[in-house]
Write a protein that binds this DNA or RNA. Structure first.
Lengths: 202, 202
DNA sequence: CATAAAATAAAACATCGTTCAATTTTTCTT
DNA sequence: AAGAAAAATTGAACGATGTTTTATTTTATG
């Protein structure tokens, strides 16, 4: 057992979150319990409550990490010199890939939005905005035709759309006639939405 | 305490589900526990396991009810003699209203999609399809321009989009610049998507 | 009326989040 | 350096949970 001041509170926090990520990835979010995390890092359950207010607080910090990770994931897959449409499709594909690769983590992102009664803290909202900003910046070339306000709104709508496509795994659950993949759905969303949005219509 | 054969198993099932709906609506999904449901209907917890395989099974049946209810809700609000665009906007608004009015119920619909490991049973998928079919039928007038296959795909994408808009309550959580309401987002999604989809573009 | 079968209750189990008192280790004071 | 104060950590405890098992009651059956 770890004994006094082997690690600072900040270190324990780090260790706990590392353990939490591993548990979620390898055993699923249902196995993410206080005791499991504590014993994994060589402490007992009481210690966790020294560095986190409660389990929800820990999950919030865990989700913040996921958002950072997702943001980097999307950044790494962005391509230069592409049309907004191409950029968005790359982003959507990357988002879908992340959700598929780290499903448990990704799910927790939205479970928490439900369970948290209080408002989300600023440091969390900032992480959300960062991810969200990627879609926004892909749309900025359209600022000539559309106002900045409309761009922001479109980015929200598009992200929500891709999010919904991932959430309802319709491709898997409702696949009755002809397997339409998640990415195909996202492509359809982006193509048609952008056609309408970028004003190529009468 | 209720005593032997006061109610058939089917009646107990009904009572339990009625109690569950009330609990979820009035106290939230977190208060939906086996003991709470059992005592509400005047039985003890063991009896519940006579009519449901486990709590997840009960939630699944509860969700089936919600889907039926949602389907009727959407039906009641449909309008006749309207363009696909109008129909879809009415549907989207109704969907959003339902999610707002019965948030706890509505949330459980998608939490369960996550937690259930096994495939969803047929009787549940049929309920999903029924709701989904409403969007599809609103799009059928476009069958001339687009193939039946494309209609089905578009319905999926649009529903997913509205779903995502509801899920990320961006209007409330990420509302940094200018309050864009959920319905406005849905309108933007449908308008632009349909413009692109219905082929009014070059 | 006795006995089998079913329905229900009650108790038990392991686990959970959370709190708290007890114990150990460090730091501070003189 | 020694003892007191403070902090870190444990371990036990509490109430609640999902689920299973045992015991009891009620009905049905012969």
């Amino acid at each position: 057992m770890a004994r006094r001041s082997d690690h600072s509170r900040e270190e324990i926090k780090e260790m706990a979150l590392n353990a939490a990520v591993t548990i979620v990835d390898e055993e699923g979010s249902k196995k993410l319990t206080a005791r499991h995390v504590a014993t994994t890092i060589g402490y007992t359950v009481g210690t966790l409550y020294l560095v986190f207010k409660n389990l929800d607080d820990m999950v919030l910090h865990l989700n913040a990490r996921t958002l950072d990770d997702l943001h980097q994931w999307l950044l790494d897959r962005r391509i230069a010199d592409a049309t907004p449409q191409q950029q968005l499709q790359v982003l959507a594909d990357a988002y879908i890939d992340y959700a598929a690769a780290y499903t448990a983590r990704w799910n927790m992102l939205f479970e928490s939005l439900v369970s948290v009664d209080n408002e989300l803290p600023d440091w969390y909202l900032q992480r959300l905005s960062k991810v969200f900003g990627l879609i926004e910046s892909a749309l900025t070339p359209l600022t000539n035709r559309q106002g900045q306000e409309a761009i922001v709104q479109a980015a929200r709508v598009l992200w929500a759309g891709v999010q919904g496509i991932c959430t309802l795994k319709i491709g898997q659950q409702l696949d009755l006639a002809g397997g339409q993949s998640t990415k195909e759905m996202a492509r359809m969303l982006i193509d048609n939405f952008l056609k309408g949005f970028s004003g190529e219509c009468r």
